[in-house]
Computed example of a mutant assay.
Amino acid sequence: MSLVVDIRHAFGGFALDVSFEAPAGITALFGRSGSGKTSVVNAVAGLLRPREGRIVVEGETVFDAGARMSLPPHRRRLGYVFQDARLFPHLSLRQNLTYGLRFAPRGASGPSPEEVAELLGLTALLDRRPGALSGGEKQRVAIGRALLSRPRMLLMDEPLAALDAARKAEILPYLERLRDRTGLPILYVSHAVPEVARLATTVVVLDHGKVVRAGPAERVLSDPDMVRQIGVREAGAVLPAVVTRHHADGLSELELSGGRVFLPAFDLAPGERTRVRILAHDVILSREAPVGLSALNILPATVIALREGSGPGVMVQMQCGEDRLLARITRRSADALALAPGVGVHAVIKSVSVARIDIGGG
């Protein structure tokens, strides 16, 4: 495991009691504001000393309350990226990037400044100063500076929270490249479902200072019991896919474990792997294979579970090939279709209902 966290701490009326293990890849700490996400990251970074517990990074114990041992932040070799890029305004982008080299351990290997600039799409901007950069560009510089400190893990505390939708869409592909090319473990804090769905390999859900669910992103985000944390409008499934071809009419074809789907065209090449988030309220169910519909995506599935809320809605979880799919329909519709675990259905998904931000890379 890249990271083992088992800590307890009290803040007045708030108690933190968190235990999880994070494998390689991006582990997202997900939850509402005030759930304890930043406190956990600060404990890993050494900015918060818990009253009890233990933290292990890449096999090394960096904190052990029982042994009264806590490595100072600079000895933990962790790169921390905050919400605010915190660049030096009087230095060029190149100088801001290479500032991270000052904190790299002597003899530590890693990508060169030029390689980091290429990875993050900054090569053409190296001579500019921060005042001439967009919010997304500044945040990419902050990530590059952290990478050049040669960390053994990156900590990111809501790095996209201060960006508008356009800047978020701009930076997400670079975070995917960072995840897929460097192999560097990342602990990523967010309460934004689209970010977590695109980036995370593992999700740890926090609620009132406690872990309520942890596991692979596809399983956690497709769990109907997570609707309370995620929200009804954001509930959906994350499905791995392979791009098969791009069509002249502006649609891209992908292969899921449960069938093929057509989505608005994007720039991944045929053969590349990706992930698609399909929102539960964009899925229509039919007991029979529908005909004469404008919808192109019809996937056979089997009902696994139904979860009723306080209102008229029902969340239906289905097995679709090797993956899980969610649909939100009315209780009346569920009764009319006689839905129950084991019942076969057809899930109907409109191609245009899947937003570009819900199609990830890697």
Rank of each mutant, 00 (worst) to 15 (best):
T27W: 05
G231Q: 00
A200Y: 04
F63R: 02
G311W: 09
M315I: 15
A235I: 12
R228K: 10
E218H: 13
S109F: 00
I349T: 07
Q139K: 11
A355C: 00
H191K: 12
R167A: 13
A192Q: 08
S109K: 14
R94V: 00
L125V: 01
L175K: 03
G342A: 15
L16W: 03
A289D: 14
V204N: 09
L306K: 08
G121E: 10
D157I: 06
D17F: 06
D157L: 07
R102V: 00
L337Y: 12
R273V: 05
L326S: 03
L325H: 04
P270Q: 09
L256Q: 07
A65V: 14
A301W: 15
G144L: 13
S2E: 11
A108T: 09
R54L: 15
A237G: 03
E60Y: 03
V220P: 06
L206P: 04
L47S: 07
D323Y: 03
I186L: 07
Q319P: 01
S353R: 08
D249M: 05
E195D: 15
A340N: 02
S35G: 08
Q229F: 04
I230Y: 05
S353L: 13
L97N: 11
R102P: 02
A165C: 00
V232C: 00
L199F: 08
L279K: 03
I359L: 15
R150E: 12
A248N: 07
T61E: 15
V238E: 02
V343G: 02
P151Y: 10
L16P: 04
H74Y: 15
L239M: 08
V5A: 01
R68C: 01
L126I: 10
M156T: 11
V227M: 13
S39A: 15
H74W: 14
G209Q: 06
